[in-house]
Design a protein around this nucleic acid. Sequence first.
DNA 1: TTGATAAACCGAAACGTTTCGGTTTCTGAC
DNA 2: GTCAGAAACCGAAACGTTTCGGTTTATCAA
Lengths: 340, 340
Amino acid sequence: MSATMKDIANETGLGLATISSYFNGGNVRPGNREKIEAAIEKLHYEINETARGLKTDRTRTIGVVIPELQNMFAAKVICHMEDILLKHGYAMIVCDCRTDRKREREAVEFLKKRRVDALFNIPVDNEGGHLKSFLKTGRPVVLIDREIKGIACDTVCTDNFRAIADAVRLMAANGHRRLGMITGPQEISAARERLRGFRSACEELGIAEADCVTACGDDTMEGGARAAEEILAGEKHPTGMIISNYSMTVGAIIRLNEMGISIPEDLSVIGFDNINFAKAMNPVLTIVDQPETLIAEAAAELLLKRIEAAGDEAEGARHVVIPARMVEGRSVRKIRGEEK
Amino acid sequence: MSATMKDIANETGLGLATISSYFNGGNVRPGNREKIEAAIEKLHYEINETARGLKTDRTRTIGVVIPELQNMFAAKVICHMEDILLKHGYAMIVCDCRTDRKREREAVEFLKKRRVDALFNIPVDNEGGHLKSFLKTGRPVVLIDREIKGIACDTVCTDNFRAIADAVRLMAANGHRRLGMITGPQEISAARERLRGFRSACEELGIAEADCVTACGDDTMEGGARAAEEILAGEKHPTGMIISNYSMTVGAIIRLNEMGISIPEDLSVIGFDNINFAKAMNPVLTIVDQPETLIAEAAAELLLKRIEAAGDEAEGARHVVIPARMVEGRSVRKIRGEEK
DNA sequence: TTGATAAACCGAAACGTTTCGGTTTCTGAC
DNA sequence: GTCAGAAACCGAAACGTTTCGGTTTATCAA
């Protein structure tokens, strides 16, 4: 079928080892180098990464397991990681486990069989059971967006605590003293941190606990819609609402539109992620914008370093935290003193 | 390191061929079957797909090359394909070429080196130069969303012509007789078809050619914004605007907001793709919704069939066309007789 | 029990690389 | 021209599977 190194060896009269050395950056005399290149050209030779992978036990492939490819945050992070990894000659196999623990575990097993060199994971199983057997192989794992206690591996997360605390402060600076927050499921560390940020900032600003209502939106559009409704149905009518992920933001806004609630006249809103979506809103939505590019870079760097260092004494897990930034639109109204 | 078939053979006292046969659905006596399963359990054996791939020259891996992962349409299609392929034991390596021909060509070469069994491609290079060498390997290619003349391979496309023609008809049914359309680059077959649909429907409905203005938005957000402005700057003030892909829709809407143009009072709009985005608009945007799920299913089916049929006499290329559907929101105004 | 037929099983060779230890060729100082 | 040391080169073995042809074992009718 296609040409092999042996064919190149025959064509050039050189030995197999020399050809291999050529492809792996070894020293080859200039004349032979030319001969090899001519033979490659002539025979349309292309290195067989499968064979190479078998021999070296390195597939130059990274496994990625995420809860949802449709998830903007995950998609953006992956997109940038792919860019960086490709430059280093690594391929990426992405598995979307649809926020399902069983599928997540299966995905990891699938990737293990394929001998991926390392794993990126935005974990669904907050106990990390799916990672145990992979970790035993000694191959590195980098967790993104969420930590798991008891699983010793590198992590890269947004500074979730501060992200939401900043949102609260922005609301307060505009005179809001009754706030609602739509949270994610509390098994997830990122969602916990965000809620913690909310409570802590409220306390710091002297906002009474009774004036802070929260509702869990399950990180889904439907959940976000339901939670928005729930918050507004309560007797404490918040003047400002903070929504702590992208899907829930979309869901909540759809529902607010349906309910005929105007932003920001009837309710001020701070959403999460996806600047393009925010800008397309009328009025432009104020959001917390996560630094996907920086996260991807940090994660890729961590991962590549671990792969290179394979075999060395593994050093302790690193935890990188990256700040988010507020992008102000016009969805937060300034409340005057007299009208609280 | 990890256990091999040889270890299983030693453990069970069986031969290598029997173990292999076990893993490939061959006949093994029940007693031996149990022994093998016990050994697998004990040694934590996992089949090595790399070795298998080398031997069989089938990696059970599909290469995917797309212009942009951020592209909603591409992301959705990929998401469903991944689902189907995983069920069949296939992995997917996705390469995002950032709408760049050179990167697209490199991506195909990269995947070829990795011996992927087949290729999915939403092509950027409309001459298909990047595919030639891959096609020579005899491995199948399925083109999605765009055809390339002169490249004989299966394709799966939306019925782009009718999708936009329907949009025009909807506008006309609401009394609009002066229309603007934001098109994609005309090198791309899908964009050509959409423009053709626009012109054809306008003609059919007796809308004067002078009342149909078009502007090319390059399939990007920025381009969509620019094109929207261009169309409204002309002396013919269209009452309705049709935008022929998702990014351009977002871009155009952002710009319209910035310009203070209200939808649909000042201008009726029909956008493209992403039903969630459309529903989050206020008023809800009327859009053309592409059937990503059906496209993914059709493409995966075509591909798997080709892979199974490898070696058989290749039958002629198939071209599947799938209808889009209109999802009506409130962004198209009904114009009364007197006020044109 | 026997014999014929089918079902299981077996080991060796092969897939296309990398790597190891050993051999040849080059280089340049004398 | 010689020699030592370095640089280049070499073939064979190995990685973990599948597959081929051939052998053993099971099955069952007579």
